[in-house]
């Protein structure tokens, strides 16, 4: 944290932040229809599902784990929401139930990883399929669209004629909480230690399994919240909502400089990565790039994002090594 201004400047998360600004400026200048408030509110609104899940996903990846089932949990939560709504339950009851269900989904992932010692990659590929399957069983191929208007308006609307969607405000609160938890609280500090060396963390008295269980549970909860938001934002609860969203989330988080091997990264970087991805998708749609080509771009970004921080780290390690060498021989 106390690196020189130069060293800070080459950190990958600041690189991504700068890249985001450049992309935004170029888009304002050269892409027709980008700069108006309505488009910007679309950009933000469409990016919010990625951003919401990216919050716990960042913490999870920092701790050396991953959850690929988040999009399925979101889909399941949407499907349950639709099914219960069809049953005539009030939305005020349904939403807490959906969130609870998401927490349970996350808890199951967490228990499989921490109690049975299975790799989270494998566990959550399994639950990715399982949760999506349950969603389909529950809702079939129905689409539930007739949610109360004030909820739909909140999820899809913006504040007056500004570019700010209503939903951005609660997201900013959640972002602030996540930043504090990861970067200022003991919990976050222990996550970095776990991700960098789980064994050393255990030998330092950190309750590794408990921390991971909490994280998986919160991730499930946030995925369910995203599922609720998705169904309201697009006014459609279907079993296949948010399919493939996990790829976008992970691409964005890695793009933001969170090390896939754990132990490194900042939430600022991750969120910059999320909105960089969101902006690129928005621009590509505006200039009529096909959906298939957009996926190619996401894939390339994913590879670049795994590669980039590594190159940056080589540079900074070499620099630190020289510094230490400079100090040791003069004892």
């Amino acid at each position: 944290m106390a690196d020189s201004p130069l060293a800070r400047a080459v950190r990958w998360d600041t690189v991504v932040g700068a890249l985001l600004i450049v992309v935004l400026l170029l888009s304002f200048g050269f892409v027709d229809g980008f700069g108006n408030a309505l488009n910007l509110s679309f950009l933000i609104g469409n990016t919010l599902p990625i951003a919401l899940i990216a919050l716990p996903m960042t913490l999870l990846v920092v701790s050396g784990e991953i959850d690929l089932s988040v999009a399925s949990t979101a889909g399941l939560s949407g499907a349950v929401m639709g099914a219960l709504w069809n049953q005539g339950m009030t939305i005020e009851t349904i939403i807490p139930l959906c969130l609870l269900l998401g927490a349970v989904c996350g808890l199951i992932n967490g228990l499989l990883v921490t109690r049975l010692g299975l790799p989270s990659l494998a566990v959550t590929i399994g639950t990715l399929a399982a949760y999506r399957g349950i969603a389909q069983i529950i809702l079939g191929s129905d689409a539930v669209t007739d949610f109360p208007t004030q909820y739909l308006d909140f999820a899809a609307g913006r504040i007056g004629d500004t570019f700010i969607p209503y939903a951005l405000l609660p997201f900013l609160v959640l972002l602030a909480i996540a930043v504090v938890v990861l970067h200022a609280a003991p919990f976050g500090r222990s996550l970095f230690a776990i991700g960098a060396s789980e064994e050393a963390a255990r030998f330092a008295g950190i309750r590794v399994k408990r921390q991971k269980l909490i994280l998986f549970t919160v991730t499930g909860l946030m995925a369910a919240l995203t599922g609720v938001f998705w169904a309201l934002h697009y006014a459609s609860a279907r079993y296949d909502n948010a399919t493939g969203l996990e790829l976008a989330v992970i691409a964005a988080v890695l793009l933001g400089g969170i090390d896939f091997d754990g132990g490194k990264g900042t939430l600022g970087g991750a969120i910059a990565g999320v909105f960089l991805l969101g902006a690129l998708q928005n621009v590509m749609s505006l200039v009529n790039v096909s959906a298939q080509s957009q996926i190619v771009v996401t894939g390339v970004l994913l590879v670049v994002s795994v590669l980039g921080p590594r190159v940056g780290r080589q540079i900074s390690v070499a620099r630190a090594g020289r510094r230490a060498a400079a100090s040791t021989p003069t004892s």
Partner: peptide, 13 residues
């Protein structure tokens, strides 16, 4: 190296 320290972390941390 494996148990006593998180090698990628600072002395302070």
């Amino acid at each position: 190296r494996a148990q006593g320290l998180v090698m990628d972390m600072s002395i302070e941390r």
